[in-house]
Simulated scan of single mutants.
Amino acid sequence: MSTQLLISTSCWTDNIDAVPECDNDQRNALSRKALAKKAEEELRETENVRTECLRQLKVWIQQNQDVENCITDDNFLLRFLRVKKFSIPMAQQTLLKYLNFRKRFDHIFRNLTLNDDKVNELLTNGYIFVSPVRDSQGRRVILYDLSKFDPKRYTGTDMARAHAITYETLLTEEENQILGVVHVADIGAINASFVTLFTVTEFGTLIKWGEQSFPMRHKEIHLINMPQALRYVYDFARSNITQKLKERISVHDGKSTASQSIELEALPAEFGGHVPAKDMITWWTRQVDAKAKRILATDDIRLLSDAGIIRSKTARRDAENMIGSFRKLEVD
């Protein structure tokens, strides 16, 4: 596990090439001990629990005839254990759902690289990117600017692929698996043409399955400048997510009001911060490109059957209770 975690913005310089060095500056880093404490407090993660749960999950994968060529290194498997606070049965279900999600939307997840011209454009023009400056709690902040998305040029698939490559890249860092992410989106440019990007069924499935299947901890979601005319789209999206996630969404009338609850230091100058968006974008595209091989490796995983996925809430609850969800797992 990486021992470094940027929690301060004081080391930012105007030279974008200095950002990677800034990330490794121990003067602004959360120690490994502090990060481990956070993982234990929020995720029930200890060295013994981590070791035993990884062992059990790997054995289950090896014996599962429905899954083929699954990545079994610790970094990949820990994202499923951490998002479910080391409940073995819940982590297993999330892994199966993640693979089923990728299978159902193969056109979105396969061959995710910056070699895809549309994805490259959406990341480099600033539709979606990640700040190189973590917030005060050490979390990565994902920025969205809907004014940079032209529905006449890009499709819903292009949009979803830009999101997918961003999220997959973030999950390669264990700090993000532990601490989660913050979303900040300026959606003022959304108009009626955006509604045609997805069918109602596809949009609803992406939202619902995305929350249930993608092993990411969404800590805060800030929506800025929501057009009242499209409030029904927001209401529909909310109807497809859990109450827990609903409570983490904040809607702001404008950037001035948003600044009261969003840490400006982690935002680009265009959002009220200090660092130009173009510098953040340059930094982020480098991170995405550096993780390309890792992300492409997920294309080799196959879900041969979805029979193991528990769809009934009652059956899922009974299964979790029966196994005890391993939340009090202790290893001698």
Rank of each mutant, 00 (worst) to 15 (best):
T282S: 12
P268Q: 05
F76V: 08
E42T: 14
Y144M: 01
E173V: 08
E42P: 00
E68L: 15
N120I: 03
T314A: 12
T13Y: 01
C53Q: 09
C11A: 08
A160S: 12
F101N: 02
E202A: 11
S312L: 11
A162R: 04
G204Q: 13
A269M: 11
W284C: 08
E330L: 10
L245H: 06
S2Q: 05
Q62R: 15
H252E: 05
K152E: 15
L303Y: 07
H183N: 10
N321I: 09
K291P: 00
N48A: 14
V119C: 09
E220V: 06
H252A: 10
L122M: 10
L114V: 08
M1W: 07
P89N: 09
R317K: 14
M280L: 05
K148G: 04
R231T: 09
L54P: 02
L170R: 04
I309Q: 02
T9W: 02
T3K: 08
C53P: 01
K97Q: 13
F109S: 04
A160K: 03
I310S: 00
R238C: 15
M159S: 07
V67T: 12
R79E: 03
M1H: 10
T298I: 13
F203C: 09
R316N: 13
N191S: 15
A277M: 04
R79G: 05
D106L: 09
